[in-house]
Design a protein around this nucleic acid. Structure first.
Lengths: 233, 233
DNA sequence: ACCTGAACACCGTTCAAGT
DNA sequence: ACCTGAACACCGTTCAAGT
């Protein structure tokens, strides 16, 4: 009560329109996208929304609920934009790239997915994958493992790529110099003990994460095709 | 200074032998293994080690340095135990399973690897993979992408599996009931909109993560084998 | 050189109190 | 029903001071 009148004049004005869960989630996404994971604090949210802690907790269970909701929002947005191509293989590539790019653009989504890999929003992704594998004539018996493997691969790479993106954002070096120093480290490794790492240093500098990701999808698709043959017993 | 004599009698006795970075790391691993990621606090370390904050910071840069060192320790331990089989494919499977099992046993390693995917300790893993791909006659041109894809897949799955293991450890349900409830959710999904998810529910309940992981490794190995043929131009 | 531990600058979360 | 914001129970990290 003491200095109340003094502090009140300095306090930010409260909002007049009412708060909503949706508004809180969108504000959280803005914060995460613009200033990174560590910028999402309850404090920052109260400031941005001109409100108090309790107001936020009235619409959202806790911070992890908020992070999960924000993640669902991004994923749903990506998947709804994914069209169906005529060629199943091509559609699968586009689908995988869509998730890859989305997580690259919102690295915090990668971190959250690595904490909670099975969000309901990913059901659509799984469904699409299974449908396309069916179109590729993968027998039902193998489909479960194949779909699971592709899910794992796509999410796994995206998550790791996001970790790199976050580290790049934290430091002040750009991707080129980052790869240069990494490649330099690989090149300095003892060539007799690590011949292959040593030899790969040059390719590390030149490689494109997105292309390598796609190369992996293609390896998977080739491997999958063999499941079709071997099942014709 | 006030209640100093009063509190001193209740204070835990200080250690007499000297602290070391190694001892701190091992204690951190014990804490992480027995009580999970959230149990590793500087406070808990001072108690377990009968020392003060400054003593720990004298041997370790900060908490993330400590977590990284603990992770390196586990990974190095796993890789040093991996033997070389006569069949390269079999060796590759063992290698992948070794990392999978290690991260399953120490889920916090998975979380840390998803934050810092390129720890030096993983160089050995990469080297082994590349060497085995060479033994499988994968042409040099394709080896970089193939090795990267395999690394990504193995780490990706292990990390996600670790996330599940952590969530299971946090809650009080066991794996069987967890899968049952997940499968029940999948089964309740709208069958006309999600026919494949709906159909996969039964397999979800019965599947074994470790076996599905191996099935994925085989898919990739099959796909990689095809790189050998297509390069004979 | 190695260690101590109070103090600092943060967190997420709660809850009596207001409208 | 919806919101306020002081207070609580934690964090990791620092640093003057000790041996």
């Amino acid at each position: 009560m003491r200095k109340k009148t003094a502090t009140r004049s300095q306090r930010a004005p409260r909002r007049t329109d009412s708060l909503s869960r949706e508004l809180i989630i969108q504000t959280a996404i803005e914060l995460l996208d613009s200033r990174g994971e560590s910028a999402l604090t309850l404090r920052a949210l109260t400031v941005r929304l001109s409100t108090g802690y309790g107001a936020i907790y009235h619409h959202v269970a806790d911070k992890s609920d908020l992070l999960a909701a924000a993640t669902d929002d991004i994923i749903t947005r990506v998947l709804s934009g994914a069209g169906m191509d005529t060629d199943p293989r091509e559609t699968l590539r586009h689908l995988a790239l869509g998730l890859f790019d989305a997580i690259d653009a919102h690295p915090w989504v990668g971190a959250e997915l690595s904490r909670q890999p099975w969000r309901p929003a990913l059901l659509d992704f799984y469904e699409s994958i299974a449908r396309l594998l069916d179109a590729l004539a993968i027998p039902e018996r193998s489909r479960f493992d194949a779909a699971g493997t592709l899910m794992n691969y796509v999410l796994g790479v995206a998550v790791q790529n996001a970790a790199n993106a976050r580290r790049l954002a934290d430091s002040d070096t750009d991707r080129a110099t980052f790869l240069d120093t990494a490649a330099a480290q690989w090149a300095q490794v003892n060539p007799s003990r690590y011949p292959f790492v040593h030899a790969a240093a040059a390719q590390l500098r030149e490689h494109d994460d997105r292309e390598q990701f796609l190369a992996g999808v293609d390896i998977f698709l080739t491997g999958i095709a063999a499941l079709r043959q071997s099942s014709e017993s």
